[in-house]
Computed example of a mutant assay.
Amino acid sequence: MSGGVDSAVAAARAVEAGHDVVGVHLALSRMPGTLRTGSRGCCTIEDSNDAWRACDKLGIPFYVWDFSERFKADVVDDFIAEYAAGRTPNPCMRCNERIKFAALLEKALALGFDAVCTGHYAKVVRDAEGNPELHRAADWAKDQSYVLGVLTREQLEHCLFPLADTPSKAEVRAEAERRGLSVAKKPDSHDICFISDGDTRGWLADKIEMTSGDILDENGQKVGEHSGANAFTVGQRRGLRLGRPAPDGKPRFVLEVRPKENTVVVGPEQLLAVDEIRGIRISWAGVPLAEAASGEEFACAAQVRAHGEPLPSKARVVLRAEAEGGEGTDDGELVVMLESPLRGVAPGQTVVLYQGTRVLGQATIDAARSLSRPAL
């Protein structure tokens, strides 16, 4: 129970379906002021009160579980470490992977519960053999299957998503209104919950040693200086403060972050396009495809952002036992060859694979490149 309208309606539907439901709100910080407040958060004291009121209205027990230490270690510290290494992490992905459907689910099962029910817009269906599969929700505009792509077959066995077939968020709000839930008109949460003022660069400056260095163009020429390479991300346009304009006068974007050299490479927007992605830390959302297990190439669609893509890009994918250069990883390397280039793909982000509405699995992006141009 996050304190939002989606989880409140999901709980109401679970009760109506005859399940024995207990509402749980996760306390993810022992200093609530460090989390976002109002409509911009998801785990504050205000949200906890909203979750309690929803449970009270539904007549179900309500508990607050303290996961603050696990959240700090598995999400916040991971976020800092990834930026320190020059990568761009997705903390919501890590929270789903390590908190909501790992730590929470483990505790729930240990206490005798059968499943974790959430207000995510996604669907679990069974194949012909009864194995669980993760699919997109009916409302593609609100579909959250991307951020759930980290779920494993074992976790999907214990997941309930009552909003899966709801055609729109407007219908969820209308239902909340009919049920007398006070969160019916509460705005959606967004941004990073543990960065209270939304200033990621400023927040990181207190956690990572920032050293000034050079900003280079695609030809290796110095065009400016930065106050810390780790605070930049691929695809970034604002905040570059370049001393020398581009020859064509057009904006420049971050093409690469090199933390070891403490340099940032910028260039024209067209150089952001990549057509090959290599991923590590691979997991499969259900039973893996036979081709994945055998190392054969298979066709699918690839998505690298939670929102903003009306359709994911078509791709050919192969799972290799060893990374390029002979250095293996624990679970191999996923090579995603895109039919149409994508822009602004940064190491540390997540690539999620689909066939139709089904989520096949995901990998953390280790490298992305264009095969049509030389390396920068």
Rank of each mutant, 00 (worst) to 15 (best):
A273N: 03
A176V: 11
V223F: 14
I80K: 00
R238K: 09
E322S: 07
V147G: 00
S145A: 11
F62Y: 15
A110C: 00
Q270A: 08
A368Y: 10
L289Q: 07
C92W: 09
S39K: 11
A246E: 03
G202H: 08
V22T: 15
M31R: 05
T211F: 13
A367W: 13
T88V: 12
H226D: 01
R369M: 15
L58P: 12
H307W: 14
Y146F: 15
A299E: 14
L353M: 05
V9I: 10
D139N: 13
R94V: 12
G361D: 04
L360C: 03
I195M: 07
A81Q: 13
A246C: 06
V234T: 04
Y121K: 05
A84P: 10
H120W: 12
T329S: 11
T44M: 02
W284K: 06
V223W: 15
N131C: 06
D191Y: 09
T364D: 11
Y63F: 14
A14M: 15
L104N: 08
R13Y: 09
V352P: 07
K250H: 10
W52F: 15
I45P: 00
R373P: 02
L353R: 01
D214Q: 07
L216H: 01
K186F: 07
R320T: 06
T44K: 05
E324Y: 05
G59Y: 13
G3A: 01
C159K: 02
A176H: 04
E106Y: 08
A315K: 07
F194I: 05
S340C: 04
G286A: 01
R278K: 04
W52S: 10
H158T: 04
A102Y: 10
R13H: 06
C55L: 15
